[in-house]
Amino acid sequence: KELVLALYDYQEKSPREVTMKKGDILTLLNSTNKDWWKVEVADRQGFVPAAYVKKL
């Protein structure tokens, strides 16, 4: 499975999103959308801005 690194803190703004902290390592589930990537963090799945994460 592919992992991404959170480059910035992100606070979810809708139930479809997830909160992450800078430095978090997240499991990447889907990166087909260039703006929003689906990730899993702490047993929750949701979207984060693609610009806020980097593939490892």
Rank of each mutant, 00 (worst) to 15 (best):
D9I: 02
R44M: 06
V4I: 08
G23F: 05
Q45I: 13
L5R: 09
V18E: 01
V39F: 00
Y8I: 09
Y10A: 00
R44C: 06
M20Y: 01
F47Q: 04
R44D: 04
G46M: 05
E12Y: 04
L29D: 02
F47T: 03
E40N: 06
D43Q: 10
T27Q: 11
G23K: 02
T32A: 12
L5S: 05
E17L: 05
E12D: 05
K13M: 13
L3D: 04
Y10G: 00
K13T: 12
E2N: 13
A42T: 10
F47Y: 15
D9Q: 03
K13V: 08
L29F: 04
E17A: 06
I25S: 03
E2F: 11
K1Q: 11
I25K: 05
D43V: 08
N33M: 10
K21S: 10
Y8W: 10
T19G: 09
K22S: 07
G46L: 05
E12F: 06
V41T: 15
S31T: 09
T32Q: 12
D35Y: 15
P49A: 02
G23D: 06
Q45V: 13
V18K: 02
V4G: 12
E17R: 04
P15V: 11
T27I: 15
D43M: 10
Q11M: 14
K21Y: 11
L5E: 11
S14T: 13
L29I: 14
L7D: 02
K54I: 15
D43P: 13
A50R: 13
Y52D: 05
E12W: 05
E40A: 11
N33T: 06
E17P: 04
L5M: 14
N33G: 12
D35K: 13
T19D: 04
N33E: 12
K1L: 14
W36S: 02
E40I: 09
Q11K: 13
D9K: 03
K1I: 12
K38P: 01
V41I: 15
V4M: 05
W37T: 03
N30C: 13
A51I: 11
K21D: 04
L56Y: 09
E2V: 14
V39Q: 00
D35W: 15
S31N: 10
D9Y: 04
I25Q: 05
R44V: 07
V18Y: 03
K13N: 09
A42H: 15
P49G: 02
L26Q: 01
A50Q: 07
V39G: 00
S31F: 07
K21G: 05
E40F: 06
V53W: 01
A6R: 01
T19L: 03
A51W: 09
A42E: 14
R16V: 11
E40Y: 06
A51H: 14
W36I: 02
I25E: 04
M20H: 01
V18A: 06
Y8E: 10
K22P: 03
Q11L: 14
L26D: 01
A42L: 14
A42V: 12
V53G: 01
N33A: 10
Q45D: 10
F47W: 15
A51Q: 12
L26Y: 11
N33Q: 11
Y10C: 02
V39K: 00
E2H: 12
T27H: 10
D24C: 07
F47N: 04
E17F: 06
E40S: 10
L56H: 05
Y10T: 01
D9R: 03
D24S: 08
Q45F: 07
K22E: 08
F47L: 09
G46I: 05
I25V: 11
D43A: 11
D35A: 11
D24Y: 05
P49F: 03
D43C: 13
D35L: 13
F47S: 04
L3F: 15
P15E: 13
K54G: 09
L29G: 01
L28D: 01
I25P: 01
S14A: 09
W37V: 07
K38E: 14
L26I: 08
P15T: 10
V39N: 00
F47D: 05
L56R: 03
V48N: 00
A51K: 15
W37R: 01
Q45C: 12
K22V: 07
K13G: 08
K22D: 02
K34C: 11
A50W: 02
S31K: 06
K13D: 06
W37F: 07
K22N: 05
K21M: 10
K13P: 05
A6Y: 01
I25H: 05
L56K: 04
L3E: 07
Q11I: 15
P15G: 09
S31V: 07
P15S: 12
L28P: 01
N30M: 08
K54P: 02
P15M: 11
K38D: 04
V39L: 05
S31H: 09
D9A: 07
G23I: 01
V39R: 00
A42K: 14
K38W: 14
K54M: 15
T32Y: 09
L28I: 05
P15H: 10
R16E: 14
V4T: 03
V41F: 12
D35C: 12
L7F: 04
G46R: 02
I25N: 02
D35V: 13
S14P: 04
K54R: 13
S31A: 13
G46P: 00
L29E: 03
A50M: 04
A51V: 09
R16S: 14
N30E: 15
V48Y: 01
L56G: 03
V4P: 00
T32P: 04
T27A: 14
P15Q: 09
A51M: 12
V53R: 00
S31G: 13
Y52F: 13
P15R: 11
M20T: 04
T27L: 14
K55V: 13
K34W: 08
Q11P: 06
Y52M: 13
I25D: 00
S31Q: 09
K21I: 08
K54W: 10
K34I: 10
V41N: 15
L28F: 03
E2L: 11
T19I: 02
W37Q: 00
V48A: 03
V18T: 06
V18P: 01
D35R: 13
P49E: 03
Y10Q: 01
L56D: 04
N33R: 10
L56C: 15
E2D: 12
W36G: 01
Y8G: 06
K1R: 14
L28E: 00
L5G: 03
K13Q: 15
R16C: 15
K34V: 12
V41P: 02
A6Q: 01
E12N: 08
D43H: 12
V53M: 07
M20D: 01
K21R: 13
L5Q: 10
P49Y: 03
Y10V: 01
P49D: 02
R44K: 12
T19H: 05
D24R: 03
E12H: 09
K1A: 11
V53Q: 01
L29Q: 04
W37A: 04
M20P: 00
S14M: 08
Y52N: 08
F47A: 03
V18S: 02
Y8T: 08
D43I: 07
V41L: 15
K22F: 06
Q11Y: 15
M20V: 09
K1E: 10
N30T: 08
I25T: 06
S31E: 15
Q45W: 07
G23A: 03
N30Y: 07
K34T: 11
K22G: 05
K54Y: 10
L28H: 01
D24F: 05
V39Y: 00
K55A: 08
A50I: 03
K1D: 08
W36L: 03
K34Q: 11
D35G: 09
A6E: 01
D24P: 00
W37N: 01
N33D: 15
K21L: 08
K38Y: 15
A51E: 11
E40L: 09
D9W: 04
V41Q: 14
Y52I: 09
L29C: 08
D35P: 02
D24K: 03
K1N: 10
V48M: 02
L26P: 00
Y10N: 00
P15D: 12
D24T: 08
R44E: 05
A42R: 14
G23M: 04
P49T: 02
Y10I: 01
S14I: 04
K1V: 14
R44P: 01
A50L: 02
